[in-house]
């Protein structure tokens, strides 16, 4: 709250002030995501597209170690199917789409008899496989800086999904005075402007199964929505429960107030 107040006050102070120094990163562009607001929900089709962008583009460098394939079929997840829910006595493990997505990947494991390292097709209980076997390999392949894990990215950056969506579209020629070393790129939304990640998205780089036009903006916003879901998979449950709790508390407070007035009605105070 205090941070919000601070931001607000800073914004007010800014009104009369001159332009910010060039080194400051641009504020992310606002995006009207479906999950915003007290009743906002994830758009399942968008999450499916976002997963495809992650799987086909991001996952070649970025891990998502906190996510398991089964999560994709959890309630409010991209491939949730009410046929495979707790109400039917089943779980997302039984969801055939989830099984197929898991089986599409190769999971490093140990051979049960020889103990040799092997890879096998994934099962829903498996976590998303990482592109690099360890952090040293991740650093070595990426100019000394490991690509961050994306599991919590939408909560781990100021601006959240809007920042991600802006960043993915924010590449361009360097602004005045910024010099780039080989392997560096200019991105106006990235703090400092110099980023190691090459522009990851391009028109039609990912073909969407639902026929949505595959623009860079579309891909960026879809993957940002997917990452928000990945970071906060219980958001819909949370808001839903919050609504009931608030209704209860407001009614309860009203009753207590009436009770309080009743008790005190003959006492001046």
């Amino acid at each position: 709250m205090l941070r919000k107040v601070t931001l607000l006050a800073a914004a007010l102070l800014l009104v009369g002030g001159p332009a910010m120094a060039a080194a400051k990163a641009h504020e992310p562009e606002p995006v009207a995501f479906s999950f915003e607001g007290p009743f906002g929900r994830f758009n399942q089709v968008q999450l499916q597209r976002g997963y495809k962008v992650y799987r086909e583009v991001c996952s070649s460098c970025h891990s998502m170690t906190l996510l398991a394939f089964r999560n994709l079929g959890d309630p409010s997840g991209p491939f949730f199917d009410p046929e495979y829910s707790a109400e039917k006595g089943l779980t997302s493990n039984d969801n055939p789409v989830v099984k197929a997505l898991a089986a599409d990947t190769q999971i490093p494991d140990l051979d049960g008899e020889t103990g040799d390292p092997i890879t096998r097709p994934g099962i829903p209980a498996d976590r998303f496989p990482s592109p690099f076997p360890n952090i040293i390999a991740a650093k070595a392949s990426n100019g000394g800086i490991a690509p961050p894990d994306l599991s919590l990215m939408a909560k781990a950056r100021e601006g959240g999904p809007e920042y991600i969506a802006s960043l993915l579209q924010g590449y361009g020629p360097p602004e005045h005075g910024v010099t780039l070393a080989p392997g560096q790129h200019y991105n106006k939304y990235f703090p400092g402007g110099v980023i190691g990640m090459a522009p990851p998205l391009a028109v039609d780089k990912v073909s969407f199964d639902d026929g949505t036009k595959s623009t860079v903006k579309q891909q960026a916003e879809d993957v940002a929505a997917f990452l928000m879901w990945a970071a906060e998979p219980k958001m819909e449950e949370r808001k839903k429960m919050g609504f009931s709790v608030l209704i209860f508390l407001v009614l309860f407070s009203g009753m207590l107030y009436a009770s309080y007035r009743r008790v005190w009605k003959n006492e001046s105070h």
Binding site: F252, S259, R262, V263, N266
Partner: peptide
């Protein structure tokens, strides 16, 4: 404890019972 409450014809005041029930339920 409240002598004034004696004026009230309904000794078991509905609103108190309702509030206590809601508290227990919550």
């Amino acid at each position: 404890t409240n002598p004034a409450a004696g004026d009230d014809p309904s000794r078991r005041d509905f609103i108190h019972i309702a509030a206590i029930t809601a508290a227990a339920g919550g």
